[in-house]
Design a protein around this nucleic acid. Structure first.
Lengths: 367, 367
DNA sequence: GCCGTTTCCGTAAACGTTTACGAGGCTATA
DNA sequence: TATAGCCTCGTAAACGTTTACGGAAACGGC
């Protein structure tokens, strides 16, 4: 581009190290200290074969001059980036998980990673790009050492790919593609058991549930458990009690509309909602249809920031998302040989329990 | 660690290129084609001095063998990463911006970046880490070529740092630290003008607003415009109408509690809420206090997924977050000389208008 | 005072890419 | 045919870091 200029094009951040001359590399740091770059590197990286006095000198100079190792150089040489990617798809209403959800999980992950100088970045896959292709691109480029994937589909090619290539990863959510890979998931079985039983004991027999319309693996195990619980309580399974939609507010609203359109004696009288956003839309839809949650319909949902402010108070399953993030991080590190000394090596496949917080939304009596 | 093993430690993704041998580099690609690596690189990067026949051969082989350029090597040599970071703080209830908010903005940014082979990652600053220090670390390490920062504080050191070091960036949100830097912000002045005028015309004179308790630069200009509008309508400014809290659901709830504790003739009779989450908590709090939004209190808020399902329907200011992301990306590229041919170079400082969507929440009449 | 050991540090190669430079072959013109 | 110019490609350096290796100095034991 620029005429008469030799060497790599310097724009953006590179300019800091180059023309602007602000940023300092290990080389300048070394000649400032009158030692070799090898010594500086060893001193900074805590290698044993360096005099404590010089190490101190190096560390002080590094701090003073604001030296920070260059990511590209380090990654190129070490073959690892020190970065873990959390893949998520942007613009996606389909995942149904909100950002407070992720932000809280992230925070938990970070607290663990901070102890190991690991950085967490969110790898944002555009809604216009194929997630599988995106993942492969990101992995091949060497963006991260390890990955956390969420919104797992029923058959998730990402899992195949990561397992096949030996990339450390953990999935937030189970998948049928699972052949011994690590995952963490919420206790949907427990939700079904506790939720359905609770409603049955209140006399309900027409208990509605939600099922995702997309291929994401949310609700498969829930459906199974739901059917088992019905069977245990001697209630026949009724396909009309299963509502397929997107797991978000709009989906909840649609469910309400569909319910309102059913003859009253065919409607579900209770609901166990697997997802945290559905209840918000369901409440609104019911009110619009002249039905009152907690009076005309018993609802058990999932806790979330916005669900927390529903009226009547939602009876919901709750868990600490921050703790979920911590467990997630620890489980991921357990798959990485480099951390075997601190996190016993092994494949973690854990179901995270949830706690039922009683509200007033499930007080409705069956017709 | 491993005894008798020379060369860099191979774990994680590096193992793919090394021991596992799955991943192919430019070297193997070159010897597979019987040409030099220089030619391969030129062919792939669309340089002119390469025979079209060989270029075709190279591209085909690259596609067939699944060659993807290594991020570290490329970044090291080019001095640019091809990555733009969107910095955000995890676990933060304080930013007040919700999930769908960012995911939608991200999606808009991506659509622009996709045209330029730019990748967007979210740089997640832990709530336990100082944002300024995090930013400097991330910049110095060379994580990204450019940055988008949000949740700008009133005096935001990040802006100083980025400007001082010549890093391309754009801020989502204004800041007083602003000395000619690019930013995008929502039209809070317009909100105040339209919102306050609307309530005044309905006869309200005690109009409440929210102000953030933290140092984030949300609401400063709003407060100014609010006071100007009061003055224009001949209404004296009443400090008791300004409610300081966190800009989230809980904050809205607290506002409701404070309102309920006020003597009825001192309460605000209308509210213009700058933030999208406040209304959710405010609604809930008002209901709990026996007050009905839209009947006992006129409310104008900001649109969001969850606010969309409030009853009565929230009269709100709305905008396309995806478009906001697109504008954000284009404005950022306009600050980068490398894209001067496509996005005319210049500092963009733009106020994004919002549209008032009428609901029923502002129908309440003043006492 | 010699030798073995330890401690510390400098040297240089390597990671995967991009790119300036130059060399060779070809075409075209004189 | 010689020369100038273009097209194509190979060579090698460079980016910033880590690390294996070897060497120098210091030290202790005989």
């Amino acid at each position: 581009m620029s005429i008469g200029f030799t060497g790599p094009c310097k724009t953006g951040i590179r300019a800091m190290r180059g023309a602007a001359g602000k940023m300092i590399g290990i080389k300048r740091l070394a000649e400032h200290l009158n030692v070799s770059i090898g010594t500086v590197s060893r001193a900074l990286n805590g290698k044993p074969d360096v005099n404590e006095a010089t190490r101190k000198r190096v560390l002080e100079a590094a701090a003073e001059l604001g030296y920070v190792p260059n990511q590209a150089g380090r990654a190129l040489r070490k073959g690892s980036t020190g970065v873990v990617g959390f893949m998520m798809q942007t613009g996606s209403e389909i995942t149904g998980e909100g950002d407070i959800f992720f932000m809280s999980v992230f925070d938990g992950v970070q607290t663990v990673f901070a102890r190991h100088q690991l950085d967490l970045v969110a790898l944002l896959c555009s809604s216009e790009e194929d997630p599988d292709a995106y993942l492969q691109r990101v992995v091949a480029r060497g963006f991260a050492d390890a990955l956390i994937i969420s919104a797992t589909k029923r058959h998730d090619h990402r899992i195949d790919y990561l397992a096949e290539h030996g990339i450390p990863f953990i999935a937030l959510g189970r998948s049928l593609t699972d052949a011994g890979q690590p995952w963490l998931d919420l206790d949907f079985e427990g939700m079904a058991e506790t939720g359905v039983t609770r409603l049955v004991e209140k006399g309900h027999s027409r208990i509605g549930i939600f099922l995702p319309i997309d291929d994401i693996n949310l609700g498969i195990v829930f459906l199974d458990s739901y059917r088992q619980m019905l069977q245990r309580h001697g209630i026949p399974f009724d396909p009309d009690m299963v509502f397929r939609t997107h797991p978000n507010e709009r989906g909840g609203h649609q469910i309400a509309e569909r319910i309102a359109a059913m003859p009253p004696d065919k409607r579900p009288t209770g609901f166990v909602l697997i997802n945290e956003k559905l209840s918000v839309g369901l409440y609104a839809g019911l009110y619009e249809a002249g039905l009152t949650p907690g009076r005309d319909m018993a609802i058990i949902g999932r806790d979330s920031t916005s669900a927390h402010y529903l009226t009547p108070k939602l009876t919901s399953f709750s868990l600490s998302l921050r703790d979920l993030g911590i467990t997630l991080a620890e489980s991921l590190l357990a798959t990485m040989p480099a951390y075997a000394d601190q996190y016993p090596l092994g494949v973690v496949r854990k179901i995270v329990p949830m706690e039922l917080v009683e509200g007033d939304s499930d007080n409705a009596l069956p017709l």
